[in-house]
């Protein structure tokens, strides 16, 4: 790890220590091995690496969707190892937003509903405030004319931007994106990337994105490169 990649200790949002994930099998498969790094606030980080290098597995661990075999994860200073599945879900709801390669929107609900659902689950805002915020987020992403369309009635780029708006619904500190532009054409890729960049700049949200696209990775301020589940390099760009 280079010195440049160590954030100010006061602004550390996410920290992993010796994170290891081994899939139990007849011949155990090591997905992630001994990964340690810190992520500060308002960072835009690319996780890169060849196929099978453990990028997505690392992202699921960071998003508390999977539990590590060894090692520890701290989110906003809170150690997650001993938290119950309900506590982890609550932490995800409040602090983490996900964007997947395929939009993963709920198909029966409109774009507006999809963005409002995390807010309804959190229950901090009134229904009017939830609606206003969801409309605002979608408008910011250029989707003001598609609020009441279902995912099937949207293009790939539009769906992915709805997914970004949904990830931002509860104003999380951290957005984890797994190949967010992997299924998009170049124009839609640019739109989604610009949306993410804008979020980092305007909302001071940290984004950790797994990507195969080296051009996009080059435009992010920090890159963590994995090889065989281990960090090959971690540097500011």
């Amino acid at each position: 790890m280079s010195l440049a990649s160590i954030p100010d200790p006061n602004s550390v949002l996410l920290e992993t220590r010796n994170l290891t994930r081994i899939l139990p099998a007849v011949v155990p498969v090591t997905l992630v091995e001994d990964v340690s790094f810190q992520v500060g606030q308002s960072e835009f980080i690319a996780i890169t690496g060849p196929s099978g290098s453990g990028k997505s597995s690392l992202l699921y661990l960071l998003g508390l969707l999977d539990r590590p075999t060894r090692g520890r994860i701290f989110i906003d200073g809170l150690e997650t190892e001993n938290l119950s599945s309900t506590d982890l879900a609550q932490l995800r709801l409040q602090k983490i937003g996900f964007v997947f390669q395929f939009h993963f929107l709920l198909p029966e609900f409109t774009a507006l509903d999809n963005v409002m659902i995390p807010m309804q689950k959190l229950g901090k805002l009134t229904s009017g405030e939830q609606r206003d915020r969801a409309e605002g987020l979608l408008s910011d992403l250029g989707l003001e004319d598609f609020l009441h369309r279902r995912p099937a009635q949207l293009s790939g780029g539009q769906r992915q931007r709805v997914a970004v708006a949904r990830a931002l619904a509860n104003a999380p500190d951290l957005i984890l994106a797994d190949e967010p532009t992997g299924s998009l054409d170049s124009k839609a890729t640019e739109q989604v990337f610009e949306s993410l960049q804008k979020i980092v700049e305007t909302q001071k949200t940290t984004i950790v994105a797994v990507t195969h696209d080296m051009d996009l990775a080059a435009r992010m301020e920090r890159r963590i490169h994995l090889v065989d589940g281990r960090i090959d390099y971690d540097r500011k760009q």
Binding site: T86, A89, R92, L93, Q94, I96, F100, P118, R166
Partner: peptide, 16 residues
């Protein structure tokens, strides 16, 4: 099954 994964990733606990 996919919706279940989505809801869990959004922060819905198992009992929900």
């Amino acid at each position: 099954a996919r919706d279940i994964a989505i809801l869990k990733s959004l922060g819905f606990p198992e009992h929900d």
